[in-house]
Amino acid sequence: MTMTRQTSTRRAVLRGALTTAGVIAAPCLLRAEGDGTRRNISAFRIHDWRDHFDTLGKGIIIADTTVKMLQHWTADGEMRVYPTSVPLTEDLTKRGYTEVVKKRKNPGWAPTPSMRKRNPEWPAYVDGGDPKNPLGTRALYLSWTYYRIHGTQDTRKIGRKSSNGCIGLYNAQIEEVYDRAPVGTQVKLV
C-alpha cells in the first residue's frame, strides 16, 4: 500500500494532537498513578452470583470492598450495581457470608463501643431523620453485630474508604435496595 501525501499529513496531524494531548494530560495521569488510585470505570469488577451462592433464594447482595461497589440481585434475577463507601481500614473490614436480618426506615444510630473509645466526643445516640445521622434514610441490618448496609447524609463518602465497618450508599440508592431486598436476602462481603 502506498501512502499519499494527504494520508501522511493527516497521520502527522493526528500523531501531533495525540502527543500534545498526552503532554497536557500527563501531570494528572502521573498524579493518579502516584497515589495508587485507579480513576476509571475499568476498576469495577462485576461478580456472577453463582460463583458465591448455590441459589438466588430471596435475593443476593455482594459488596466488593476493593472496588467499592455493591451488586444486588432480586429473587427474579434482576441485577443492579451501586457505588459504595467501605471501611477505613482492613481491621474494620469484615468479609464473608451474612444475611439481612432486619430493615429500618430512618434508623437511629448509636456508635459502637470501639467507636466511642476512638471518638469519645461523638454523641451517644442520634435520632433517625437527623441530618447528622450517619445511617441516612434506610438501613439493612446484617446478622453480624454492628454491621449494616445503609445510606449516608455525606455523599462525599461514596467511592471512598470512609466508614467504621459498614457499607454506605447514596440515600436514593439504599432506598431502592431497601424496597427490593427482603429480610433473608443473602449477603457476601468480598
Rank of each mutant, 00 (worst) to 15 (best):
G22M: 05
I62T: 05
T20F: 11
D154L: 05
R180C: 06
V177H: 12
N106K: 05
G96F: 04
V13K: 12
G184S: 03
P83L: 08
D76H: 04
V86N: 03
V187N: 11
Q173K: 12
A32K: 03
L14C: 07
D154S: 05
D179L: 08
T112Y: 01
M1Q: 10
V183R: 00
D76T: 08
G128S: 08
N119T: 06
L14T: 03
R180F: 13
K157Q: 15
G36T: 00
K188A: 03
V126S: 01
G16E: 04
T152E: 04
L92Q: 12
P27V: 08
N119L: 03
V67S: 15
R104S: 10
A43S: 14
D51L: 10
G59K: 04
V86F: 06
A181R: 06
S163Q: 04
V126M: 02
K102E: 14
R15T: 03
G59C: 01
M1Y: 05
A75H: 09
T185C: 01
T112N: 09
A63R: 00
K188V: 00
H47A: 12
G129E: 12
L70M: 10
G96D: 00
S42R: 07
T65G: 07
Y82A: 02
L88E: 13
R156H: 13
T112Q: 05
T84I: 13
I62L: 15
I46P: 02
T19I: 07
R80H: 10
G59D: 00
T185D: 01
I41T: 11
T4R: 13
T152G: 07
G36A: 08
D130R: 11
L92G: 04
A63V: 01
I41C: 02
T9S: 10
T93S: 04
Y82C: 01
K132M: 15
G57M: 00
Q6H: 15
R156M: 06
Q71R: 02
S114L: 07
T20Q: 03
T84K: 02
T137D: 09
K94N: 14
L14F: 10
T98G: 08
Y141F: 06
P83Y: 07
A110V: 02
D64Y: 14
P182A: 09
G165D: 10
Q173G: 00
A43G: 11
I61Y: 00
T112H: 06
T137P: 07
P120V: 14
Q173V: 05
Y178V: 10
G77P: 01
W109N: 09
A32Y: 01
K94Y: 14
T7I: 12
L92I: 01
N106W: 05
C166N: 14
D76L: 03
L140Y: 06
H150K: 04
T74E: 02
L142G: 00
E176S: 15
P111A: 09
R38T: 07
T20E: 05
R45V: 13
A172L: 04
V190T: 04
